[in-house]
């Protein structure tokens, strides 16, 4: 049994600049209709690079037992 980690952006704070999308090494992030960032939970490995990049600090890493 392992742990699944993935990034969760806060759509209320997100400025949809796309910095996270550019930084993501797995191309797991897209900007939904220019409104906010959306993370593809399938692709995301929870590395946290986007968390460090986001200028609005709106991304959190969530963890869950699988």
């Amino acid at each position: 049994m392992g742990k699944k980690r993935w990034a969760v952006p806060d759509e209320k704070i997100c400025v949809s600049c796309g910095a996270c999308r550019k930084a993501c090494p797995r191309e797991a992030i897209s900007i939904w209709k220019g409104c906010y960032a959306v993370v593809d939970g399938e692709k995301c490995v929870g590395c946290g690079i986007c968390v460090k990049t986001c200028p609005a600090g709106c991304i959190e890493i969530k963890e869950e037992e699988t």
Binding site: V15, S16, C17, A19, G34, C35, T53, C54, P55, A56
Partner: peptide, 17 residues
């Protein structure tokens, strides 16, 4: 702050969003 901190309050960004 962060390299792209400007983007958080960029007028063009706010307007387009």
């Amino acid at each position: 702050f962060k390299p792209r901190t400007w983007c958080t309050f960029c007028p063009m960004g706010s307007m387009t969003q």
